[in-house]
């Protein structure tokens, strides 16, 4: 003899099945939502990461460019300073050379007086300068024929030939 079947069993079973199915569906949707959220989050994270990489790379490139420019500018500034030093040295040597040449009598002192009188007049007052050469004065006018001035003028006339001091042969 079997126990009498509960008339509500099928209903209960159906309700259970429906509830399970619904739960499965909810769970599926939740899983899908979670997957989608994770996918979107991964996508966003990848984008943020790529953006950060790009920004980092751009910052790095900018910093490298700045450093390269600064290094090139520093190198050029040092080269210019070295050229200026060489030029100053040449000027000192030229002045010494001209002084020595005048001491050695390369130019007769009378020539200075002649030049001064030719330019300023016969009554020009001529004064010998320490280091060689003369200065001459007339009212309102003056002439500098000192060794240093002559050396500087000679140096100025050399022009671009001076660049041979620092140019590669």
């Amino acid at each position: 003899m079997t126990a009498p079947a509960d008339a509500l069993d099928p209903v209960r079973a159906e309700l259970l099945r429906a509830a399970r199915a619904e739960a499965e569906a909810v769970l599926g949707r939740a899983r899908a939502d979670a997957d989608e959220t994770v996918r979107l989050a991964r996508g966003t994270a990848e984008k943020v990461l790529a953006q950060a990489r790009d920004l980092g790379a751009a910052d790095g490139r900018a910093a490298a460019t700045r450093e390269r420019v600064r290094a090139a500018a520093d190198a050029w500034a040092r080269e210019l300073a070295a050229r200026a030093e060489v030029f100053a040295d040449l000027r000192v040597k030229t002045r010494c050379g001209v002084r020595q040449a005048l001491v050695d009598g390369a130019l007769p002192s009378a020539r200075f007086a002649e030049t001064a009188r030719a330019l300023l007049g016969a009554d020009a007052r001529i004064t010998a300068v320490q280091g060689g050469g003369v200065t001459a004065e007339a009212p309102g006018r003056r002439l500098d024929l000192s060794a240093d001035t002559l050396a500087d003028r000679a140096l100025a006339r050399m022009g671009v030939r001076i660049e041979s001091l620092w140019e590669r042969p």
Partner: peptide, 12 residues
């Protein structure tokens, strides 16, 4: 002016 030296004027 000459190639050798410039006359300087002092009458300011």
């Amino acid at each position: 002016m000459s190639g050798f030296a410039d006359v300087e004027y002092t009458g300011v």
